[in-house]
Design a protein around this nucleic acid. Structure first.
Lengths: 261, 261
DNA sequence: CTACCGTGAATGTACGTACATTTCTCGCAG
DNA sequence: CTGCGAGAAATGTACGTACATTCACGGTAG
């Protein structure tokens, strides 16, 4: 074990140098197997445990590692779960909490090429995509029409999955090991096309949310998704505060799935 | 100075008890003048400076206090600016970035009582409210219809403000010192009433966002707001990632203010 | 009255020590 | 082969010390 030197004269605190070096090594994948323990770092960098803990404390509040008593710190595998993210997640978890049974009717699940969508995924137009179209129900009434395109190269194992009850992200994680870690959503209010309105059993005077979502995993585009949600059955709820920022809530208010307020 | 006792036998760590007690005292306004220094807390709670610093460290990462070398820690004044918060902010800052001039037409600014709204503000029905109704323009076309109710007891100084160009929160902060620090929003997609459609010059086939917002400052309800935004001129944009969570962006894409995508 | 400097006080960094609590491992008994 | 327990190992908590660095205040010289 080589002893690593830190600059004790320069302006930067030791714990900061240590923290930055650990981040660097962590990102390089060096700690994928096991993260070194505190005492190991004490020896390796020749600093006190106090300093090591100060650096690790930063990494922990940044969510990069997790630590518990008695066991070695570990790299935060799947940095998610804490905020499974996004309006779409908010939608289905709020249905879950409402107690309404949800299921999907798969209208299409196949491979096809689509130049326009491929371009949005930063792919060549001729590249095959996996296309999944579902009508999602909450209770006996349709709630949303969901259309997803994924690169076939990544998502082909999903072709024989059953999507009537499981979520796309579950299947994606289980069958391919891919976890979305970044993305963007554009949410619009609009009126559905007559066909969509019929499909969704949408009242004549009701509008819909149109949610376009691009998801990436490790900087590679993974999904392009267009979901249409009945506006008379769903509301986006969010809380914000100076400290926590803006967070979508799972609509603890029951109004989200009713028509009135 | 009374020595405060912490439970050294119970399960909770000393620093956690200390931190919670400090948060309690801070929220009660006890430290509005000056926050006690580390050594003062060491004496007051009879713990080591290490423990005090651990508690203060938490408060600092939570953004409740700020500290610098050589000077005493201070209560974080105006914890905001970093995330001025919410869909409504997102709306108007995206207009700003688009370069379109914005102005408002004040349709009402008066005191009135409204039992329903008062109840939502957790106030008695007969309590007078300040009511402000504006039609907001981006360029030459209306963008949103904005209705706000605030408790007159707090907001009365706003009665003779000019809201054609300045924002409500600016005026509120300048004239009363109140800064919103918490709130919630419910965002719906719907079709406007004929009157609203006419007012907004809203095309026949366009839907609108209906944004209900309750804002609080220091646990006191401050505003109840209902804003209707033309769906053909605005889209909510958000980015999310595992670390930063869900953040509304100021629609860097120009599509937000156009009809097409 | 102003400008400068020195002193004191506060926080930041870094070291050390001790013990508590939890987890993991390994060996042994059944 | 399985199950249990003892012990080792790791992190969490809490104490102490020392010095560096920065800020605030006050006194002094001009």
């Amino acid at each position: 074990m080589t002893v690593r030197r830190l600059d004790r004269a320069g302006g930067d605190p030791l714990w900061k140098q240590l923290q930055e070096d650990l981040v660097r090594r962590l990102r390089s994948g060096e700690f994928d197997d096991a993260f070194p323990g505190e005492l190991a770092l004490v020896e390796e960098y020749a600093v006190s445990r106090h300093t090591v803990r100060q650096a690790l404390g930063q990494l922990r509040t940044d969510g990069l590692i997790v630590a518990e008593r008695g066991r070695q710190p570990r790299v935060a595998t799947a940095p998610e779960i804490r905020q499974p993210m996004g309006a779409l997640y908010s939608l289905f978890s709020s249905v879950e909490e409402s107690g309404l049974p949800q299921h999907s009717v798969v209208r299409a699940l196949d491979l096809r090429a689509d130049g326009v969508v491929a371009a949005r995924l930063d792919l060549e137009g001729s590249i095959p995509l996996l296309y999944l179209e579902r009508l999602r129900y909450a209770g006996d009434e349709p709630l949303a029409l969901d259309r997803v395109w994924l690169p076939a190269a990544l998502a082909e194992p999903l072709l024989n999955a059953d999507f009537t009850h499981t979520s796309l992200y579950n299947e994606l994680a289980e069958r391919t090991g891919i976890n979305l870690d970044h993305g963007r959503e554009d949410i619009r209010a609009m009126n559905p096309s007559p066909a969509e309105r019929a499909l969704l059993h949408c009242p004549d005077d009701a509008a819909v949310f149109s949610i376009i979502r691009q998801g990436t995993a490790q900087n590679r585009p993974v999904e392009w998704r267009h979901t249409i949600v009945r506006g008379d059955r769903f509301a986006l709820s969010a809380e914000f505060s100076a400290h926590t920022g803006y967070r979508l809530t799972s609509s603890p208010n029951t109004t989200a799935l009713t028509k009135a307020w």
